[in-house]
């Protein structure tokens, strides 16, 4: 039993890292712009598709970062459309990103087709505490942890990171001291694009990606981010890991088909629980 458990936990941590990366992209954008970016799962899909194409001409280790960089540009583009027009409210921008996510289906199907895609990751399996785990999951964890540490350093200890945090904390005051809030919002979208793409690139070798995989990814990413009120990357990481491990355990010991219900039920419970602790009038306006 114990050896199975270790395997499930590591698999769950790996998938959870992916959810956490998608979720942290949502957080990066939401903190600065108050927009929940519905195209966040799309970034992961496009990242995975780009990497699969680049890998046919470039070696591992070069193709993946290039794909992440390319999707950072896609993120910038999404940001331009979503918040570029003055006077667009965060609610309107949410619907715009939803529209862009659907539009992206057309682009992805046109360029990469509608069949699932995958590419090879770290080959083989390793034994952890007597349990067998695909080695690639260790890479996923090994990349995600430093990325989150780097984000913490960036947001807390660099001028640019502080300026982004300032926009999140008080946009009016940020403008008063000369920070270009719109440009910071676009930067946040680019960061969100990169984080989403990283999730896609890391997960694809263990989970095939289709053009409409974005729904599962965004919902799980949102669930992870909701735990931290959509503003705290560290809590998002914890949330993503919790979600990933729970799903892996449910799939391992119970019925794999109930994974979705568990994850979504958890998210609904957290959201409704949070809302119940605050009077409705203080919630985000619709």
């Amino acid at each position: 039993m114990a050896n199975e458990l270790a395997g499930y936990v590591i698999t769950g941590l790996g998938t959870g890292c992916g959810f956490a990366l998608v979720g942290s992209g949502l957080v990066a954008i939401y903190r600065v712009t108050r927009v929940v970016n519905f195209a966040q799962g799309t970034f992961a899909v496009i990242g995975a598709m780009c990497a699969s194409s680049l890998l046919s001409v470039l070696p591992h280790g070069i193709a993946e970062p290039l794909a992440v960089l390319a999707v950072a540009l896609v993120g910038l583009l999404v940001g331009f459309v979503a918040i570029g027009r003055p006077g667009t409210t965060p609610q309107a921008a949410l619907i715009v990103t939803l529209g862009l996510a659907i539009f992206a289906y057309a682009v992805v199907v046109l360029v990469w087709g509608d069949q699932p895609r995958s590419f090879a990751g770290v080959p083989g399996a390793v034994t952890v505490l007597d349990g067998r785990v695909q080695s690639h999951y260790l890479l996923v964890i090994g990349v995600t942890v430093p990325v989150f540490a780097g984000m913490a350093l960036f947001f807390g200890h660099t001028d640019l990171g502080r300026a982004l945090t300032a926009c999140a904390s008080n946009p009016y005051a940020a403008r008063v001291i000369g920070i270009d809030v719109r440009r910071m919002g676009l930067l946040a979208f680019a960061i969100g694009g990169a984080l989403g793409a990283l999730a896609g690139v890391l997960l694809t070798p263990v989970q095939q990606i289709t053009f409409d995989s974005d729904v599962t990814l965004i919902v799980n990413g949102f669930a992870a981010a909701v735990l931290g009120g959509l503003t705290r990357p560290a809590v998002t990481l914890a949330g993503g890991l919790l979600l990933g491990v729970t799903q892996a355990l449910v799939a391992g010991y119970g019925n794999a088909a109930h994974q979705t219900e568990i994850a979504l039920g958890l998210m609904l419970a957290v959201m409704i629980g949070r809302a119940a602790r605050r009077p409705a009038a203080l919630e985000e306006p619709t």
Partner: peptide
């Protein structure tokens, strides 16, 4: 209109 989530030092630096 201070940056409420940030320390006094960070508020000043942003200035």
């Amino acid at each position: 209109q201070v940056f409420g989530d940030l320390s006094v030092e960070d508020n000043l630096r942003l200035g």
